[in-house]
Nucleic acid binder design. Structure first.
Lengths: 202, 202
DNA sequence: GTCCACATGTAACTGGTTACATGATTGG
DNA sequence: CCAATCATGTAACCAGTTACATGTGGAC
């Protein structure tokens, strides 16, 4: 139940149309809560039906016509309630770690290139965050809003820093590893054909 | 499409029944790819239908009777293919950061307690990881499998370290912040009732 | 024999993803 | 007036979640 609240936040920061929201979800809020335009339109419909937001007046006969929304008092109240409510952190889900675990069983062949690619992606993201920090948070400005936004950005920066460092370390480790084939030292009873492509992918 | 591969990995490490898998997904693999027993049974069914795994023989008339599975060559091949295939990292989704962003608009009242709680949870997880490291990775042992597993655990440790540090920093920042009410300096045109509870939660 | 823990499973729902459809506006 | 682009929307699907149902075997 987070998307509606992400939208409420975005709309409070600035009333917008569906497409404007979509664009803003490509950066800023989207850095930690992404959404596609289909999700956003669907959710805008629900929020309007529930009376948490309303379309800004300006006679719109629907399709092709831009429609902007603003948050109603009830929407602001709901957002405040949600923000203050206790929520458990979700258990993390990371495919890359899963793939490494799999590689320990079926062999590391092929995965190294993708680690390198991920490292590059994270480095790029980190650079982008640092750029934003330099641009939007020069020393001196520190209203409560600034401090909170900076704090959030810091989380992004530190996370990307973690990933780049860990991936660099992982790649280093890989060069020390024997080879790429099916993991030596691991055998299974009868089903051992070495992992060649016997079957079409699912 | 990661759950089936998580299961294949787990089954290659050790053939198991559905419930055994469920238990193993509460730790180990579950630390970075969690799953409930319903998901697991459903997926075991699919994997068997596709010929990637098979039930170990021992006449089982279904319900209430434990049924163990092992991976077939085709399953191992599919896992190797998936492991080596390039995959983009998923954009991250974090509710806590979203809530902070919302707090910058509707006020920080109430959120501090939950930050403190999260900090405690992450500290506990970190301690658990360190415990595992001490137990399972004493200096000296370093087969390729050990190195990979240790590398994965390291990711967990470093991630939890990041969260604990960031949360501690955030809480420090909070004590310096003015107060808890609706964010000062932010006003919106007409819909400003201060965020009091006008409406029942959705 | 009854109760409880173990083990497998079904059904309904929610949120996110992918593919596609349709109308309006604008530049050439 | 036609193509490209902007803008809103529908439909089908898939993965994960929640709640519940059913059978087995052992402890008492």
């Amino acid at each position: 139940m987070s998307l509606p609240h992400a939208i409420l936040t975005a709309l409070l920061e600035k009333p917008s149309s569906g497409l404007e929201l979509t664009r803003r979800f490509d950066k800023s809020i989207g850095y930690f809560w992404s959404a596609t335009h289909q999700q956003i339109y669907r959710e805008l419909g629900k929020l309007e039906a529930e009376g948490l937001i309303r379309a800004l007046p300006a006679e719109q006969p629907a399709r092709g016509q831009r429609k902007s929304y603003e948050v109603l008092p009830a929407g602001r109240a709901e957002l405040a309630r949600w923000t203050a409510a206790a929520q458990d952190p979700k258990p993390m889900r990371d495919t890359l770690l899963l793939r490494l675990r799999a590689a320990a069983v079926v062999g590391t062949a092929g995965i190294e290139a993708d680690l390198r690619r991920h490292l590059e992606l994270h480095e790029r993201q980190l650079a982008e965050y640092r750029e934003i920090e330099k641009r939007d948070f020069p020393p001196g400005r520190d209203s409560p809003q600034d401090r909170l936004h900076h704090l959030i950005l810091r989380a992004g920066i530190d996370l990307e820093t973690f990933w780049t460092q860990w991936l660099a370390h992982a790649l280093q480790e890989f060069t020390a590893l024997p080879a790429g084939g099916p993991a030596p030292g691991v055998t299974d009873g009868e089903a051992s054909n070495g992992g060649a492509g016997t079957t079409p992918p699912r």
